[in-house]
Design a protein around this nucleic acid. Structure first.
Length: 259
DNA sequence: AGCGATGTTCGCCG
DNA sequence: TCGGCGAACATCGC
């Protein structure tokens, strides 16, 4: 599932269901998902509580008094809070057992996600070389990041050390809305265009969060419902073009999004 | 039944 | 050093 809006949705879900509950067991169903020693994970979690959460880009950081549990969701991650009397959800990889009779399952179908730990947010961001969070960054931070980059717009948006949180689908939507060709060099954009791009990153992500990351019911005027072959641009009715960049594929309107 | 997939990482090359 | 490319990772669903 996850780009920033989905991870933000997971954060709110975890906040609503799982904070301040005593953790009495951490069950690992597939240790390949761990990027830390099982022992260290247990030491951090057992007998403690999830106190609060912070999302940075596509990562969810869960604070437990002395450190952080890091949840990353890859392409197919999910969270589910459920009654421990029930069967764990399919594809559960790690299950946090609380002393109120409920569990939180970290689910990953394709094993692209990762569960790890960190001592501090700063240490983690530095280790991962993450740029500012796309949803929380200031215009100044964004302008500064743009100046440092030579990459084409699509790759820049996808680069987590440039700004963190934008993935393949939302990057297309953001460029479509700003009417920027995906292969435009980001540092050739005018100041006005950069400001517009900044605004649209925020707006597209905000809309995504409002939609809880569900891409299936987007209004027609967005690019998202048209990310497939044989589709027409909702603005100008030109053919939507599929292109490839670094092994990812994207969509854009060649008529609305000129260099 | 093969291909594609909302992500990250790494090695190669210019 | 940076940026683009392409493969690798693992596995399910269409």
């Amino acid at each position: 599932m996850p780009e920033l809006p989905e991870v933000e949705t997971f954060k709110r879900y975890l906040d609503k269901t799982s904070l301040k509950l005593l953790i009495n067991k951490v069950q690992i169903l597939d240790e390949r998902i761990l990027k830390t020693e099982e022992n260290d994970l247990n030491k951090l979690l057992k007998g403690r509580k999830f106190e609060s959460t912070i999302r940075h880009g596509k990562y969810l950081l869960v604070y437990l008094k002395p450190g952080y549990l890091i949840l990353h969701f890859g392409m197919s991650g999910d969270l589910e809070y459920y009654d421990s009397k029930e069967e764990p959800p399919k594809f559960s990889k790690v299950i946090f057992h609380f002393n109120n009779g409920y569990n939180l399952a970290y689910i990953s179908i394709r094993m692209f996600g990762k569960v790890s730990i960190a001592n501090s947010i700063e240490e983690f961001i530095e280790y991962k070389k993450l740029g500012p969070d796309a949803y929380k960054m200031s215009l100044e931070e964004f302008q500064e990041a743009v100046q440092r980059r030579k990459a084409i717009a699509k790759n820049a948006l996808l680069n987590q050390s440039f700004i963190a949180g934008v993935g393949n689908i939302y990057s297309d939507e953001i460029l479509f809305r700003t009417r920027i060709h995906p292969k435009t060099n980001i540092n050739t954009l005018s100041e006005g265009k950069v400001k517009e791009l900044y605004r649209n990153i925020k707006d597209v992500l905000e809309f995504g969060i409002k939609k809880k990351g569900d891409l299936s019911t987007y209004p027609n005027e967005f690019l998202i419902p048209h990310r497939k072959k044989e589709e027409k641009c909702p603005t100008c009715n030109s053919d939507i073009t599929r292109f490839e960049i670094s092994g990812r594929h994207g969509f854009f309107c060649p008529s609305c999004q000129k260099n």
